[in-house]
Design a protein around this nucleic acid. Structure first.
Lengths: 332, 332
DNA sequence: GCCACGTTCTAGAACGTTCTAGAGTCGTTG
DNA sequence: CAACGACTCTAGAACGTTCTAGAACGTGGC
């Protein structure tokens, strides 16, 4: 265990292989300009010395950072899923990711600042809370792609799900099962709430169910769903579409505690396909976002901006899909 | 939006403030050696130019990386919690974290390799799957601290929870409620399983309940818990302590589907206090690990190793604690 | 006035790597 | 044989910052 020991550098490899430092660099980068015999000799020495490139030096000198900074929250399981997709997409485009977490005790500004110092070529922000103006200022410095939130500013790129469409899918699914009395627990003042509420209204209207439109104020947390459920108890609908999965579990809990059977007495649809939704003990029917497509598009957008491309469609809106599980069934 | 625009450097600030580059560096680092008047002038210029230090250059030149690499998995909600604690602990010690995720499509070796190139001073690995020999080789290069897994090698530091103690707490809690017929669903071949199994046995023996010892092979996944539940159905105990929370939810689901009331007919205890355990709809009694203490100790250990300290206790084992929720109650 | 010490400030080199221009070699063609 | 082009290889500079040694200046003591 060698705490302070210097690591082998290109110079060490070069000395032992009997070539110049620049030639070793060419070999390690797999760039053209070295003979096969030299390559083999250099690689042999590098392997023996266990040479590892120093990314700091590389990034500093090359003047071309192929680094994408990603800000994610530890509080959103969905962000973990997005990381999976983003790593893949970045790898395909020859980029590296550097991650910075927002935690209950480390705010978004701190997370972003760290990435600026790393000289990332672009930033990908997962569901940022910062005001639009702040995001725009940031985008004055470097390309910024926001995921899962609509941001109305020409300098900030957006990749998000069509939330209106998502709620329409939920209502369509319930109508298909035979439901007419379908309520919606909205997301109160959350940005996505308006789109989802609109989607609910549109779909109900489309199915000729205007008279059954019923919207309960909700929110994004478990207790928001629980509170909304209590408001439904005296006159329960046969189905309810909830703003998100977490609120849906709160609602499910209250229904269960009042001996309402799901989906027998009342069907429940969540939103997001959060990781706990798939637990057999919850088995939540939900609206899922297309993670891989979103990740691919976000990385592509970031890379295009880095390359100086004129981006035609600043905002990309992706269709969601239904994931049907055990909380929905025909009405009695 | 300026894609290719060069960022302001120390040299730019120096030129405008009319001082040397080295003096600007002294000011930005808050190092001694500049007058108050000069400091003010330099900071004013730096603010106006929006100077941000280039961490690549800083790390490269300073020869002292205050960077801790953290490898975490997107599949473990618990790791997200640990990140929160690790950021705090690192900040307190004047270190930065750089994160590297293991995903279903990005293996652990890849995650580790990226951090080596960043020239991290030390690595903190959250529940690594790599064999001990591989971890030891890694520890030959730089300090390695493993969290949440026991690794028996003198070069690798370990910070983990006392899993034996955890199961003892679970059994103690159930005995206190009046249970005697307490079963344990183990974790099959998972490293932590043996400790937890031993803890269960020890606690049962301690309470004079040897004749009631009953161990069902399980595992770490939801279906493992479900399968174990099916084996318990023909002769249910009054309580069961499960290897981890995810398996516990699988078991809960099967119990519910067979009209067994929890905790009326059977009490259930999980392990880990995963984020979904606190959902009101699950409300799982569980054994929790002390996240902040673990994070603090892991960072301290890493920093001590970097400083060349002779570490006295290579392995630190931390006491867990019970989180009592709705899945446990007195037996009927 | 001279010397010693402390503080501020500067110049130059170094960190590890890549970029770029040029030298040297070899093979082909006229 | 000479000229040209392609390929291999090298030397030196650059990236942005910190480290280090030394110069300059001011103050206090003798």
């Amino acid at each position: 265990m060698r705490t302070g020991e210097r690591r082998p550098t290109l110079a060490d490899v070069a000395a032992e292989a009997g070539v110049s430092v620049a030639l070793v660099s060419i070999v390690m980068r797999e760039a053209p300009g070295a003979s096969a015999a030299t390559r083999q000799r250099v690689l042999e020495v590098a392997r023996r010395l266990d040479y590892q490139p120093d990314s700091r030096a590389r990034l500093l000198r090359s003047g071309e950072s192929r680094l994408l900074g990603v800000v994610f929250s530890v509080r959103h399981p969905f962000h973990d899923d997005l990381l999976t997709g983003l790593y893949d997409a970045a790898d395909k485009q020859g980029y590296e990711l550097t991650l910075s977490a927002v935690t209950p005790r480390r705010d978004e500004r701190t997370a972003i600042a760290g990435l600026l110092q790393d000289r990332c070529a672009a930033l990908i922000l997962l569901g940022p809370l910062a005001p639009t103006a702040e995001l725009a200022t940031l985008a004055d410095r470097l390309p910024v792609v926001v995921m899962t939130r609509a941001v109305r500013h020409r300098a900030v790129d957006v990749v998000r799900t069509d939330d209106s469409r998502g709620l329409q899918l939920a209502v369509d699914h319930l109508v298909e099962l035979g439901h007419r009395r379908i309520a919606h627990v909205d997301g109160a003042r959350w940005v996505a709430s308006a789109d989802r509420r609109q989607g609910y209204r549109d779909a109900m209207r489309r199915h000729g169910l205007e008279e059954f439109v019923r919207i309960i104020p909700g929110g994004s947390g478990e207790e928001d769903g629980a509170r909304a459920a209590r408001l439904l108890l005296d006159d329960p609908p046969t189905a309810v579409a909830v703003f998100n999965d977490l609120a849906a579990t709160g609602l499910l809990d209250v229904l269960r505690r009042h001996n309402l059977d799901v989906p027998g007495d009342i069907s429940v649809v969540g939103y997001d396909d959060s990781s706990f939704s798939a637990l057999a003990h919850i088995d939540l029917t939900t609206v899922a976002q297309d993670i891989d497509t979103m990740a691919t598009l976000a990385v592509s957008r970031a890379v295009e901006r880095v390359a100086g491309a004129q981006v035609v469609h600043r905002e990309t809106v992706i269709a969601p899909r239904m994931v049907i599980r055990g909380t929905t069934g025909p009405p009695r």
